[in-house]
Amino acid sequence: MSTVVVEALVKRFGRTTTALDGVSFTVAPGELFGFIGPDGAGKTTLFRLLVSLLRPDAGRASVLGLDVVREYRALRQRVGYMAGPFSLYPDLSVEENLRFFASVFGTTIEREHARIAPIYAQLEPFKTRRAAALSGGMKQKLALCCALVHRPEILLLDEPTKGVDAVSRREFWDLLGTLKRSGLTTIVSTPYMDEANRCDRIALIHRGRLLAVDAPGTITRAFDRPLLAVRARERYKALLALRGHEHAHSVYPFGDVIHYTDERADAPADQIGQELRAFLAANGFADASVEPLAPTVEDTFIARTAESESRISNPESRIPNPESQIPNPESRTGSS
């Protein structure tokens, strides 16, 4: 039996905003399931629905076999939730926060020590420090600890690594790996595509719809076009030039390089590479280098959003501006 079953879930805000537009998926027991998507995709709304903070407008959702609308009381005993923004008491110490949330669930730190030990071990040296004075990474670990203190059967973490430095992010995912080995079902969301590979399965979410739900490897294998990375000193001009190439399917910036996909799905990458080199040289980019590339989750995401955009709204433009939608994981890492 699935731990989470969601069927055709719809949530609207006001008349104009549809935050979730018919979302369906299931999560198996013990799975580490990730929602990957940019800000505003509907991740937070979905999490708030799953933990009974919102009611859906249509469709249904059950968590641990409990309906999130009708059986919310029983559900709240058994689910661990960590909201996106840090939401503990800044004026209470690490230990006081933990003790508070334990007492809210009618238990104590001592009784739950076994469950929280791997995380609490890292927090213990700072246990008298006020939460406000913790680093971003430590805050997230404390929040995770508080979400675990009542021994939940499922953990829902909404963007737990957002705004946390790269090292702390890795540490946090290591903790999630530890929890997974203990058999805890975990659903996590993130705007960082590079974190997708840590999950058993991921769902790509965009504008309230799921674009794909599968294992990260399967999702990237489904990427069916040749992909090449282009480096040039004048990156933006090169990008514009490449968009004028007769066989270009999509061209978008990716970190400090340009990713190029070709519309001839069956052409060998080496041949396209040679074509592009010649094309760029002819257009005055003598320094440009071109290399074939294995697609990442982010490439898949961009391809899928482009497809769904052209289907839904504007069949003319095949290439949406990906920069405005996809957060760049490298430029988003540090605020602690």
Partner: peptide, 12 residues
């Protein structure tokens, strides 16, 4: 602080 939402997901 967002703690109200956190508390709403508890049995209180």
């Amino acid at each position: 602080l967002g703690t109200l939402e956190q508390l709403n997901v508890t049995p209180i």
